[in-house]
Amino acid sequence: MTEPLTAIKGTKDGLLITISPTEEWGVVTADLAARLDERSGFYAGGQVRVDFGTRPVRKDELMSLRALLERRGITLNAISTASATTIDAASALDLRASLNDAVAAAGALSDGEIAFNSVEDGTYGVLIRRTLRGGRTVHNQGHVVVVGDVNPGAEIIAGGDVIVWGKLRGKVHAGANGDETAVICALDMMPTQIRIASFISMPPAEKRRKVRPEMALIRENRIVVAAWEA
């Protein structure tokens, strides 16, 4: 039996649509539309995550897919992908994007294990080469590196470390899957709030101090911030 072009299944987080990474875009979207219409109304009001596999999806393609789902009353909530092109497209549309299971599997994870080990070689992550402005959210299972500022109102949630080559003024959660060895680094650390694993820290209300690169990490069950000398 050949692999189906698209698959729809229910998960604990809502619907998951998987799309063949190789077949032509027009063919898979038509197939998806047909599948949804077969049980028309059944999915209406639902929220879906779409897994694109390794397929690079452009912004216009992603927009048309979102419109296709919206016409059927379905909200495109998040996407999974192994392609940087797709991540860029999703971020332009303010969609939550994460690296998909195929990539996560390459890191050989099993249940119960700490999802990410930041000292391991060959770990993955995303590089964002622009300022994250207010309202923008980045979710990633790996590390997140921002070359630019993270403005107030922006939020990063990462399974691994978060490195900000600029001013960090938004909210950051590193080691979001429970990795207490994760760190947060910034050239200028003035966050709204930082979290590492299950620890939360608010910056002190003191006046501006000297600007220097700093690193936040967990030491003796609390988040400490020290000069970044790594």
Partner: peptide
């Protein structure tokens, strides 16, 4: 003021996109 600047930042982000 902080709230107006926050909204301006969001709008600039949308224009960039």
């Amino acid at each position: 003021e902080v709230s107006a600047v926050r909204d301006a930042d969001r709008v600039i982000g949308l224009l960039e996109a």
